[in-house]
Amino acid sequence: MIKALLWKDYRVNLWLLTLAVALLIGPPLCAAALNLHGQLTIGSAPRAWADLLVLTAPFSLAAQLLTIVMLGANAFAAERADRSAEFLAYLPPSRWANVASKAIFAIGVCVFVWGAGLMTIYVVAPQVGVVSADLVEFRDGLLPTLAASSVMLFGVAWLGSTFLSSHTFATGLGIAGPLALLGVLQLWHYYFAPSGFELGYWYRALCWPLGLAAFVAGTVYYVRRVEP
């Protein structure tokens, strides 16, 4: 039964999977094309292919924020928008089975995307001997923030998807999540904790539990809900 549901969720979200793969291989391909162009026209020294692959990975991970928020937003709202959820509703799978299938697919794609990115940065880069100050800066600075934001974006979009009928609204809600957190932290910083307050640290620290809580809340809500 789960296999059939997974297949269905895969087909419903195929466009998102395609987007994820495109954002994974697109940037290195573009860089490679530019590199070739530079070689052929300007005659500049080509950068190593390994360099290209590794140095576009940060951009790829950042761009995947879009994919991740939409994976969360599309999970339930897509079937509600075209009302195919009403067809699924009278078939045997329980709400738990439906949720499990959607979660496995969506989180699976997120893990795949991040896995590829992290592998590139932490495993491939040293192996092929790519040494770059930019990469190090990214690893220590932006990477944790992107990770935390991804969790929050996915969690809140997922929550929105469980009760909204439009994946656009759910995406918007998902984006609003981290923004709202930033806003709250900023206010706190100005009015309650003027000195020694590290906004970035608190943002990253809170994204994870809030994102997970939103995911769990959405899941529980969907399972208890009766309407498709």
Binding site: R83, S84, F87, P92
Partner: peptide, 27 residues
Amino acid sequence: GYVPELHFIYRWMRVTEVIGFCRALYD
């Protein structure tokens, strides 16, 4: 077995795919 008034079977599925999908869901 239920037949509703309004139908919202997955529009992108082919007939064989719908049948295969449902078949896997029933004991």
